[in-house]
Computed example of a mutant assay.
Amino acid sequence: MIRLAIVLYILIASAVAGSAVIAVLTLDMREAWQIAGAFVAGLLIAVPIAAVLGRKIYNELNGPNAV
């Protein structure tokens, strides 16, 4: 399951971090620390999302009795 979560993290982190940076730029926050902060926040938010999705996909692929 951890390998699946890592692959999902790569995809999810780029989407979430990119969206966070776009949101910051839309709010006219153009200093480097603001953009970097949004990027790091997006990377951190992607960790639990990837873990939950990885667990759900893994359990669906292994049947209803998988833990």
Rank of each mutant, 00 (worst) to 15 (best):
M1C: 05
R3E: 11
L4Q: 06
A5K: 06
I6R: 01
I6V: 13
L8W: 03
I10W: 01
L11W: 08
L11Q: 04
L11H: 01
I12S: 11
I12E: 09
A13T: 07
A13R: 00
A13K: 00
S14I: 15
A15N: 03
V16R: 04
V16L: 13
V16W: 02
V16A: 02
A17D: 05
A17C: 05
A17G: 05
G18S: 10
S19L: 15
S19N: 14
S19I: 08
V21T: 06
I22H: 10
I22C: 09
T26N: 15
T26G: 13
T26W: 14
L27V: 04
D28Y: 08
D28N: 13
E31Q: 12
A32E: 12
A32T: 15
W33H: 09
W33L: 10
W33S: 14
W33T: 09
Q34M: 07
I35K: 12
A36R: 03
G37E: 09
G37K: 05
A38R: 03
F39R: 04
F39V: 06
A41V: 03
A41H: 00
L43R: 07
L44M: 06
A46Y: 04
P48A: 09
P48F: 06
P48G: 08
A51M: 12
A51W: 12
A51L: 12
V52C: 05
L53C: 03
L53A: 10
R55S: 07
K56Y: 13
K56L: 15
K56N: 07
Y58P: 04
Y58T: 09
N59L: 06
N59S: 10
N59C: 07
N59Q: 11
E60A: 08
E60F: 03
L61R: 09
N62D: 04
G63K: 03
G63Y: 02
G63Q: 05
P64M: 01
P64T: 08
N65G: 02
V67E: 14
